[in-house]
Amino acid sequence: MLLDDLIDSAQSDELLDEFAKREIRRAILAAVAIPGYQVPFGSREMPVARGWGSGGLQITLAVVHDDDVVKVIDQGDDDGVNAVNLRRLVTTSTGADQTSIAAEASVIQSRHRIPEDGLDEESILVLQVPVPEPLRGVERDMRELARMHAEADYSRMWVSLYEDKVRNGVITQTTGYPCLVNDRYVVATTPIPRWDIPRLHESPFLTLFGAGREKRIYAIPPRTKVEPLTFEDVPFEVEHADGATCSLCKSNAAFLVSLPNSDVWMCSDTDWCRRTREASA
């Protein structure tokens, strides 16, 4: 490479150099080949801070072309400040088009949610992961964690679920529910709500998980078995509130969030809510 190229590259809108993108694509391929395995990669520093979607952003930049259409959401909301910030970084640096409609998007970068609908064989879902290690709660030593994954030794995870149920009457794990992928690796499902977990199972779309700070990429390829860890006789429970419906679209078929200390509920997937309202209008 010549010095002139370097200078060109430095003055472009690129957030990542081409070698880095290639390296990330290789990590993604490895992740797809071994579903649920956390592939280490040389995570680069991004214009957004660690913990703010730097891993998801690197994946998105590595897979997006200028003919892609991207959707970026935070908490299900296309217009959340973090979603807006990441979307403008992606679109200005790649030239990709943007949409809020999941079905129109080829790449969807998300923090904490899977869109309620619209993902198909053509979609890539990129999830931002703050803590990729599902076993951190039962083991802190990374050498031991590596061994546990290598030997699929997840009994302590099961014991923690057992203890939870004994102590609290229910499994209290809230978001990021641990799942067994392809009968082999236990993964942290980022903090997506339990509501979204069933949609990872045998999904038509590819899900890529990016943890920039912890420098890990993992994947759930299309049509892969994804089971939330739970006992045969303790049903997996998704979020639910009796009688709750969205105050805007009147639906109860989506993940709802509420105002503090009130019975006013709203869809967290704002675009789904908008389309539901438009359809019924």
């Binding site: 009994s155 014991v159 057992y162 149920k165």
Partner: peptide, 20 residues
């Protein structure tokens, strides 16, 4: 961990998946 949980460890390691 509870007494029961300690016993659950080898059981789950051996593949037990039924809480009851």
């Amino acid at each position: 961990i509870s007494a029961g949980g300690n016993i659950a460890e080898p059981l789950t390691a051996a593949g037990w998946r039924n809480f009851g």
